[in-house]
Simulated assay, not measured.
Amino acid sequence: MGKSLSKNSSTTSSTSCTSYTSTLSSKPQTPPSNSRSNSFLNKRKSTFSVKSSSKWSLTISHPKNTPPSNSVLMISTPNTPSGTPRNMFTDSSDYFNVTSYDNQSSSEFKFVDGRRFYNIDSVKYFLPNDEIEMDRLKTQHYLLHNVFQSNFSSPVKEILKIGGTEVLDLGCGPGAWLLDMAEAFPKSNFTGVDLSNTLIGNDEKNIRFVKGNVLDGLPFKDSTFDYVFIRNLSYAFSEHDWKVVINEIIRITKPGGWIELMEPELKARNEGPITIYLNDAFIKDLRSQNIFINITMELEQFLKDTKQIDQVFHDEKSISCGSWAGRFGELACEDFMMIIRAIKPRLSQIIGVNQDDYDRLLESIPDEMNEHRTCFINHRFWAQKLFSI
Results as ranks from 00 to 15, higher is better:
Gln140Glu: 05
Val244Ile: 14
Ser388Thr: 14
Glu248Arg: 03
Leu218Gln: 00
Val312Trp: 01
Ser6Tyr: 11
Asp135Cys: 05
Arg327Asn: 01
Asn189Thr: 02
Ser76Asn: 05
Thr165Cys: 14
Asn354Gly: 09
Asp241Thr: 08
Ser100Glu: 10
Ser26Gly: 12
Glu265Lys: 07
Gly114Tyr: 02
His145Glu: 12
Ser150Lys: 13
Pro68Gln: 04
Ile291Asn: 03
Ile250Val: 10
Lys3Gln: 15
Gly2Asp: 10
Cys375Tyr: 00
Ser196Thr: 08
Leu160Ile: 04
Asp169Ile: 03
Asp315Phe: 00
Met181Gln: 08
Gln140Asp: 04
Asp216Arg: 07
Ser6Leu: 14
Thr77Cys: 11
Phe111Glu: 15
Val50Ile: 10
Lys7Met: 14
Met297Asn: 15
Cys17Asp: 06
Asn290Asp: 14
Asn202Ala: 08
Leu160Thr: 09
Gly83Trp: 01
Glu133Cys: 01
Asn189Phe: 07
Ser22Glu: 14
Tyr227Cys: 05
Arg327Lys: 12
Asp359Met: 12
Ile389Glu: 07
Glu133Thr: 06
Asp135Gly: 06
Leu361Ala: 08
Asp280Trp: 07
Trp324Leu: 05
Tyr358Pro: 01
Asn202Trp: 11
Ile343Lys: 06
Glu183Ala: 10
Arg136Asn: 09
Asp315Tyr: 09
Asn42Glu: 13
Pro85Arg: 12
Thr12Ile: 15
Pro366Ser: 05
Ile351Leu: 12
Ile276Leu: 13
Phe40Tyr: 13
Phe282Thr: 04
Pro28Glu: 13
Gln349Gly: 14
Glu334Phe: 00
Phe376Tyr: 11
Leu303Ile: 09
Thr90Phe: 01
Arg116Val: 06
Val50Cys: 13
Ile162Trp: 10
Met262Asn: 13
Lys138Thr: 02
Phe190Ser: 02
Ser318Trp: 06
Arg136Gly: 00
Ala332Met: 00
Arg115Tyr: 03
Gly322Tyr: 03
Phe220Ile: 06
Leu303Ser: 06
Asp357Tyr: 04
Asp135Thr: 02
Ser35His: 07
Asn213Tyr: 10
Lys317Gln: 12
Asp367Gly: 01
Asp222Ser: 07
Gly212Lys: 00
Thr296Val: 13
